[in-house]
Computed example of a mutant assay.
Amino acid sequence: MWNGDGTVEIDGFRVYYSEVECVRRIFERHPETAVNVRPKNQLVKNAYMNNLLDLIDIACLAPQELTEEELRDAENTLLDLVGVDFELDWLKKKLDELCVKKTKMETRGDCMRELDRMIVEQRQVLLALEVELKNEENEAVSDSARLGFEDVV
């Protein structure tokens, strides 16, 4: 139902027209999401819906785009929504996956930096060995050269 304030009512929530498709998809894919939501005050319900949409936006980000603090805030917001009877197991799963990916990404980054350091170190060792080999080759050529008459006499 279209309201005069630029919002549309979907399952008891007023959402801006730009959010209608997102909210419809949420309720289509996860019909249990807001069935038991307790707040009756429309402003409070709208604030909760905005928090839910913000959480979904966060879940869509790449792990490197989020700080640990933002992830903790997202988990707290999720707990607040669950506390007023939103059913968000599906979103919790996605946020947990995002946390795991971020941890893996950071661990992988540390590992990659260590491997890079080891490669640089090994390149330096290899370079030193190549210089030593070249010196040995030069000495071997010098030692194996025939002596000329003048060198002997």
Score class of each variant (00 low, 15 high):
M1V: 11
W2F: 09
N3A: 10
D5H: 04
D5F: 05
D5I: 03
G6W: 02
I10M: 09
D11K: 12
D11S: 06
G12V: 03
R14A: 05
V15I: 07
Y16V: 03
Y17S: 13
Y17G: 12
Y17C: 08
S18L: 11
E19G: 04
R24H: 14
R24K: 15
R24E: 15
R25I: 09
R25L: 14
I26A: 01
R29Y: 11
P31D: 04
E32T: 13
A34H: 02
V35M: 14
V35E: 14
N36V: 12
P39T: 00
K40L: 06
K40D: 11
N41G: 10
L43E: 12
L43I: 08
N46H: 12
M49H: 01
M49C: 04
N50I: 10
N51F: 06
L53P: 01
D54I: 00
L55R: 00
D57R: 08
A59F: 00
L61P: 08
A62E: 15
A62V: 06
E65L: 04
L66I: 05
L66C: 07
L66E: 04
E70Q: 15
L79D: 13
D80V: 04
V82I: 14
V82F: 03
D85P: 03
E87S: 07
W90G: 06
K92H: 08
D96H: 07
L98D: 00
V100P: 01
K101D: 04
K102F: 08
K102P: 04
K102E: 05
T103S: 15
K104C: 15
M105Q: 14
E106G: 12
R108C: 12
C111S: 14
M112A: 14
E114Y: 14
E114N: 11
E114T: 11
D116S: 11
R117H: 13
V120M: 00
E121Q: 08
Q122D: 00
R123Y: 00
V125N: 05
L126S: 05
L127T: 13
L129Q: 15
L129M: 15
L129T: 11
E130R: 15
E132Q: 14
E132V: 06
L133P: 02
K134M: 08
E136V: 12
E136P: 01
N138Q: 12
A140H: 13
S142M: 11
D143T: 08
S144P: 00
S144R: 08
A145R: 15
R146P: 04
L147N: 11
L147M: 12
G148K: 12
D151H: 11
D151Y: 09
V153K: 09
